[in-house]
Write a protein that binds this DNA or RNA. Structure first.
Length: 413
RNA sequence: GGCGCCAUCGUCUAGCGGUUAGGACAUAUCGUUUUCAACGAUAGAACCGGAGUUCGACUCUCCGUGGCGCUGCCA
């Protein structure tokens, strides 16, 4: 096959946000095209005028950009190509392959044959046309429906490989029928396995977040997102793998046949791995410069950007639940007494060598000193090491926070 | 109902006739330890069923079962 001839397409409908399934389909198209130095055509399938909205188009393009998925050509909008469909519709009508029925235009299906195509991923697939019936391809001459529009577009845009979801397998029979009626040669088909929800049904809203935007907001990295989507239904040489390597080793025929459950935990793990690999500057650029001082701690604990909330107490004194001050192996009173001691030490000698001093008074059960200290400073039962926190906050702020929990406590009593 | 696709640990998967069925995520336990995280170690966890083919099937064939998808003048 001549690599120069490889052309794939990405045809979203501007009827909503791009979702995980769409994007995964595009990821595979993209990889395949890049690897073969092929061309990628983006086009908007907006034959459904009721639901299509222009602003979704913008959002879709933004999402693609965010993910770093570029394309070579914009194939336009189907709503603006009615002349073209009109021409083919007339051809079909003239040749008797199609006819009008109740205003709409239907394609005539020869029910006596078998449609066979060779799917790159699944092999030979057959359909007996006796189960097909004439189907509507246009509302009227100026308003084509999906099946006609895709077939015509793919032909006009000289698409060589159609890589799409498994949910289109049944449609392929219709498309081939149409291609035959129009005298088009068929492109090569590759049907991807579906992305599933936890209950193994096609991933949809009821499974939780499916729009890319939601993941964007939660702070997942584009590279991590791309990586995860690429290994859902495909097994490269390594799980954490760059786009470049993926392009190099990608093989369409190695895409799996069975659907794959979307596992947010694995996505989070991958995202964490990408965060670990980022340089300090890169990380600060994505999370904000204000985290500079606590970067080592942040780096160690965050899996995604939304985890950053956990560090809010560095920037604003937390509200502390007095009960939380109690160390599990001691009473609340003992814990408070220890905190008072800690306060005294800091008041007198500052934070110099504080760890050694605290270790000393905490000998035997260091939790008794560190636990209430942590809670006073962070308001949290899980946090980085309180000494590290204290050093970043500085003596004055540390004392203020300890004071605060004590004052509150007196009021409570 | 009809048509189609699919079938290995909880999840993602490796395997392409002979393996102690491997890895990753998740989970559990232990270690370190002031908590969480991180890290290290360990553990549990799978070939849907039945026939065939074969000296030998997770692997090939058929049947069954199950899951999913499609079944619009939506895409």
């Amino acid at each position: 096959m001549n690599p120069a001839e490889i052309r794939v397409r990405f045809p979203p409908s501007p009827t909503g946000f791009l979702h995980i399934g769409n994007i995964r389909t595009f990821v595979f198209n993209w990889l395949f095209a890049k690897q073969n130095k092929g061309m990628i055509v983006l086009r908007m399938e907006d034959t459904d005028r009721e639901r299509s909205e222009k602003h979704f188009e913008k959002l879709i393009i933004e999402d693609l950009k965010w993910l770093g998925l570029d394309y070579d050509e914009f194939g336009g909008r189907q709503s603006e190509r009615t002349d073209i469909y009109n021409k083919y519709l007339k051809q079909l009508l003239d040749s008797g392959e199609a006819y009008e029925d109740d205003g709409a235009i239907k394609i005539k299906v020869d029910t006596g044959k078998t449609i066979i195509f060779d799917d790159v991923i699944r092999g030979r697939i057959e359909f007996d046309t006796k189960h097909e019936k004439d189907f509507v391809i246009a509302r009227n001459l100026d308003s084509p429906l999906y099946h006609l529009a895709v077939v015509v577009d793919d032909y006009e845009m000289r698409i060589s490989h159609i890589i799409r979801g498994e949910d289109h397998i049944a449609n392929t029979a219709k498309h081939i029928l149409l291609q035959e009626a129009l005298g088009f040669t068929s492109p090569i088909y590759a049907h991807l396995p579906l992305i599933l929800g936890s209950d193994k049904s096609k991933l949809s809203k009821r499974h939780g977040a499916v729009a890319l935007d939601e993941y964007k907001e939660q702070g997942f990295l584009p590279d991590a997102m791309f990586n995860y989507l690429a290994i859902l239904g495909y097994t490269p040489s390594a799980e954490i793998i760059s786009r470049e390597e993926l392009i190099k080793e990608f093989e369409l025929t190695k895409i799996h046949k069975a659907g794959a459950v979307f596992d947010i935990k694995k996505l989070e793990w991958i995202n964490g791995e990408y965060i670990k690999k980022m340089s300090n500057d890169e990380l600060l650029a994505t999370i904000g410069q204000k985290y500079e001082k606590i970067l080592p701690m942040v780096r160690e604990r965050m899996k995604k950007k939304s985890d950053l909330e956990e560090f809010d107490f560095f920037f604003e004194a937390p509200t502390v639940d007095p009960e939380l001050l109690k160390w599990k192996k001691a009473s609340l009173e003992e814990s408070k007494a220890m905190l008072a001691q800690v306060k005294e030490i800091i008041e007198q000698t500052g934070l110099e060598d504080i760890r050694a001093k605290l270790d000393a008074i905490g000998a035997g059960d260091r939790g008794l000193v560190y636990w209430p200290f942590r809670v006073a400073l962070s308001g949290r039962k899980a946090s980085p090491d309180p000494v590290d926190i204290a050093i970043i906050l500085g003596k004055d702020e540390v004392l203020r926070r300890i004071e605060n929990v004590n004052i509150k406590d007196q009021n409570d009593n």
